[in-house]
Design a protein around this nucleic acid. Structure first.
Lengths: 220, 220
DNA sequence: ACCTGAACACCGTTCAAGT
DNA sequence: ACCTGAACACCGTTCAAGT
């Protein structure tokens, strides 16, 4: 070894790759600039030559995680089914790596990374008669419905029923006189199936879009 | 002063209160256990006598932030309007303190803190004929739609149009041959009005619920 | 020019020691 | 019993110094 400082030629892409892998494997909370540097076998400060800050790096990692998302072609079938399918695929891509979800939540320009979904979504909206800003609005409803529901997904994991206290523990005592309807339906508050709830709500949004579309019966 | 250690009688509620205030004023990123202790004029370790960890404390802060939410009575009017109003009120409560939003995103048992909304939501669902688990499912769709959209809200703040690069900067070059529909509608991608988009999508969900309700015309 | 080592100003948390 | 001080094992980031 001629010198102690190798001109590593460390590329930004490589840094983002390794950061992505580390976060994916160990989680966002575990990740640090120093651990990243160790994984890259480089001085902690070298990373700062390529990225201004940890935030800037995380931004790049988030964008990278979504950049190469390849959405499959939508299946044949009724319009509603294809619209729901778009949402389902999008969501499963976002959920694919749970450790990166926290990153997407704070990463701006989420939609910019998902060009494929924009193309497919707009096509669907035009198919039922939406044009221009109307098509964009309709697409955005569906898109952000999907992203929002996905970000909220982990809240379902720890819902009562299975937990020690059960519903009592979570809701405390539901006062029959102030919350009569709630009290009467308490036994129906079973644990939440996130996938089913998403699917159900997506159908509601899709049906709403379809009903409000300029063209209701000309899809062919 | 007789001794240097006051038997402060520091109450957990007081700790949570001060933590809530600090986060609300300076943000979640600024907040630390040591700064909290300084604000309480107490040794940093004293807080650990009441809370096992920072996470446990933040959990308590999140719950406290929602505990006393008093939802106003729903206005008179058509069912759809009242359902939308419930969502709007819920959202504005969650958005009231933007600095606490990040807390809710990771706080489990979000719904447990919002008993009021459960009572009102279930009442609405029963009004159009939903019963038992059907009513709970319908309510959950509306509730989590609202929470999800709220958590995603800040993504809209930095949407292109006003930013330096504009749409070009965010989307890069939209290839006309691979994304023809997108390219054709590029000019319709104006900046996102989060409130309007939420309102619009909420109407879609509400309309979907109404249409799928057991009773369609017996509301009275 | 490119990289590093040491240092600065912080963290959350543990634990032996004080009163 | 109740609280603290010092310490441990970390952080992100700056910057003068090395090659």
């Amino acid at each position: 070894m001629p010198t102690t400082t190798r001109p590593s030629g460390l590329q930004p892409d490589q840094i983002v790759d390794v950061a992505h892998t580390l976060i994916s494997e160990h989680g966002l909370a575990w990740f640090s600039m120093r651990k990243l540097a160790a994984a890259l076998d480089v001085n902690p400060m070298t990373v700062y030559l390529r990225f201004d800050s940890k935030d800037a790096l995380l931004d790049a990692v988030a964008r990278r995680g979504l950049r190469d998302v390849e959405l499959p072609d939508l299946p044949e079938g009724p319009w509603e089914d294809r619209a729901v399918a778009l949402c389902t695929v999008l969501r499963s891509h976002l959920l694919a790596d749970r450790n990166l979800l926290g990153l997407y939540a704070t990463a701006d320009r989420l939609s910019a990374a998902l060009l494929q979904s924009v193309e497919q979504g707009l096509t669907l909206m035009e198919e039922i008669g939406f044009r221009g800003e109307g098509a964009v609005l309709a697409f955005r409803s569906l898109f952000w419905h999907t992203v929002g529901f996905t970000l909220v997904h982990h809240s379902f994991d720890h819902f009562p029923a299975d937990s020690p206290g059960g519903l009592q523990g979570t809701f405390g005592t539901v006062d029959e006189s102030t919350h009569p309807v709630f009290a009467r339906n308490l036994s129906s508050f079973t644990s939440v199936d996130g996938d089913a709830l998403f699917d159900h709500t997506t159908h509601l949004v899709v049906a709403g879009l379809r009903d409000g579309a300029p063209t209701s019966e000309e899809t062919r």
